[in-house]
Design a protein around this nucleic acid. Structure first.
Lengths: 257, 257
DNA sequence: TAGTGGTCTAGACCACGTC
DNA sequence: ACGTGGTCTAGACCACTAA
């Protein structure tokens, strides 16, 4: 009996137009999806894969990097490369369509929200901030950067900007735990309307470090302007959510026809 | 007079804990944001950068890859590496909060929507599809994969699944141009309610090729189930939008307190 | 201590754009 | 024809993890 080839053996065609590292990535991806490679199990060491596939280690790493970025593989320094086990779908969801805060969303899922203040300053607004909040360049703003967590795990980095003249005096302790919305509610500045933009971006070095993910990982970026009942802009917020841990949900209704 | 160092000179500390390629990426990023390196201008060739910074070309490439993935740099094979010019903010926006189709959204921005059918099959549903559409595994579905374009430019890949028994006979020509919603409307199956999920993912090889972007680029992934007025699920759709070209906008209202 | 992934080097050749 | 980025090699050393 001939030795059956291992489940990670991949046919390579060096004459193909497709680069070798893409062939390796594609081959591994197929074998993972087909079940030949079990979820949660370890891949052979990079050096071993390279020697068996007759390619350099750099080429193997280029292939593994592609799959790791998609979340298909998980690399552990000093330990090995593993096929990412199927997530128990514990992806916290944020419900759009109504004005709820990060804290409320996390709590509604039975988890405990948290915030670590990364930056707190009273300063002049950037052109972008001045425009979004309809401020004259002279008016000052509070600019707050916070790491938002759920059950202690980093989920997002949130940058909030508020007009100082409108919200009154603010201290770092005020925003270290609770939601900004709750604080605004106490001051009779509860937002009643907001416009929110969503898009996908890649994590830069700073965000990847704060969120504990690889540089280049996919993030859900949002930008939001909130208005009080009086029609005054009260907050301009930008947030970057981990793409692998966050999921926005919304309900839509017909346009009347 | 000593020769002033070029704007892309970067101080490197090989003893630093931060890897050299990250130092290079960080340095270039700073100089781009500070304006030392003009938007739209070309970077020195990789070999030139490497020799001046006294690092290998591989290390330079690793740094450039990080910035290119964030969209800060644009690499053109055979031509050079350029600092991405500030976008004219021609990002097509899709307005959420009401049930509108891709076609309507693109048209509402004065652009021309298009669709290229990549796949069309009448088949048995996957477990995921059967669950989302509340089907018994025996019932057949139409599964349609289309490349959605705006003014001829690829914007998204959309996978739609419809219950065959509900929608009646369907042909590839029916979906090659117009929106599915329009087609459903004619058959009195206009959706009146939908649940939509949004998250960020990295492009795999297949999607990156279809959309003409680099593997690993950030994508906005959506999943949607639509119901008719009679409360029957009529479409299960998954879509992947280019993160650099698409932007979802929504208006939110307070929760009544 | 042994094995793993992470970083880095100094080359080489290929594919594409431009002139 | 030339310069560019894209791919690939065969090494080397470091940093982390686990036995």
């Amino acid at each position: 009996m001939s030795p059956s080839s291992p489940p990670w053996a991949i046919p390579l065609d060096s004459a193909s137009a497709l680069p070798v590292y893409m062939q390796v990535a594609q081959g591994l991806e197929q074998r993972i999806h087909s079940g030949d490679l079990r979820r949660g199990s370890a891949l052979p060491a990079e050096r071993e894969l390279a020697s068996h596939l007759q390619v350099s280690r750099v080429t193997v790493r280029q292939a593994l990097a592609l799959l790791a970025q998609q979340g298909l593989l998980t690399r552990k320094h000093g330990s090995g490369t593993f096929i990412t086990p199927p997530t128990p779908e514990e992806r916290p969801s944020r419900t759009l369509g109504l004005l709820s805060s990060f804290s409320e969303d996390v709590r509604s899922r039975g988890q405990t929200p948290g915030a670590r203040v990364l930056g707190f300053e009273l300063t002049r607004p950037s052109p972008q901030e001045a425009m979004s909040l309809a401020l004259s360049p002279g008016e000052k703003v509070y600019r707050i950067r916070r790491l938002r967590t759920s059950d202690g795990e980093a989920l997002a980095v949130e940058d909030s900007t508020l007009p100082a003249a409108l919200v009154g005096e603010l201290h770092e302790e005020d925003v270290s735990d609770a939601s900004l919305y709750a604080l605004l509610g106490i001051r009779k500045l509860q937002p009643v309307r907001a416009i929110r933009h969503l898009r996908a971006v890649s994590a830069d070095l700073q965000l990847s470090e704060l969120l504990g993910i690889a540089p280049g990982a996919a993030l859900l970026a949002t930008e939001r302007v909130s208005w009080t009942g009086g029609g005054r802009p009260v907050e301009y917020a930008r947030a970057h959510y981990r793409g692998d841990r966050y999921d926005f949900v919304m309900e839509l209704h017909g346009n009347g026809e």
